[in-house]
């Protein structure tokens, strides 16, 4: 049993190989290394910390079951991110089927119960900080309110900085679809924001 710090010089690929041959310690180190980014993505996708923790935990368990299929041709983080995004997407699909039976408005309300989004305070001008904080908080909430398929594409592009082809690959859709969904997401966000913030900021 090695402590976390002893793995510092071991690459993700070697850790994954260790995990594939049964080392739970090696796998735990991978969990330690990559969970923060995965949690941030899951939190942006779901809008809830609790849902994000559950989704990332499930993703890590799926990763353990499939670790032998990780061949190292992609980065380990990308490999895990794909598992996470697919897992959350499946939840979205289940939820939208349920929502179709119940009521869309109610399901949206229950999803919004998360903690208020916070914004990093950088920059000198207090007026500017307040302005940016408001915009970012409103954006965060507007993103959570986007229909699932637009939100996922928007986040993979704008916060994960993935290329259109990577997004298409992960989601199993055409690049043209990525392009049009992204465009739709941006248009909806602009409209939401110009209503809430006032047209001046995005004119």
């Amino acid at each position: 049993m090695l402590a976390g710090s002893d793995w510092a010089c071991t690459s993700d690929e070697d850790l994954a190989r260790g995990a594939a041959s049964g080392s739970q310690d090696a796998y735990s180190e991978l969990v330690r290394r990559h969970s923060k980014k995965l949690l941030n993505l899951a939190w942006r996708m779901t809008g809830s910390q609790e849902a994000a923790l559950d989704a990332v935990q499930e993703a890590w368990l799926s990763g353990w079951k499939g670790i032998r299929s990780f061949r190292g041709e992609a980065e380990f983080y990308s490999w895990m991110r794909r598992i996470l995004v697919n897992g959350i997407n499946n939840e979205f699909r289940k939820r939208s089927r349920r929502a179709a039976l119940v009521s869309l408005d109610r399901s949206m309300d229950s999803e919004e119960s998360g903690e208020p989004l916070q914004v990093e305070d950088e920059g000198a001008d207090p007026q500017d900080i307040v302005g940016r904080a408001e915009t970012a908080r409103e954006i965060g909430q507007a993103v959570v309110r986007l229909p699932d398929m637009y939100r996922v594409v928007f986040l993979l592009r704008e916060t994960e900085l993935m290329s259109y082809s990577e997004i298409a690959d992960v989601l199993g859709i055409a690049e043209g679809t990525v392009k049009s969904r992204l465009n739709m997401a941006r248009r909806m966000l602009r409209e939401t924001l110009s209503e809430e913030v006032g047209s001046a900021r995005f004119a």
Binding site: V31, S35, L39, R44, Q57, Q118, R157, T159, R190
Partner: peptide
């Protein structure tokens, strides 16, 4: 580009990674 750069500025929560591990 504005919604994306605003989205990147939204501060993520503090995660208890060890609890997740």
């Amino acid at each position: 580009g504005a919604p994306g750069s605003a989205a990147r500025q939204v501060q993520a929560p503090e995660w208890n990674v060890e609890a997740l591990v």
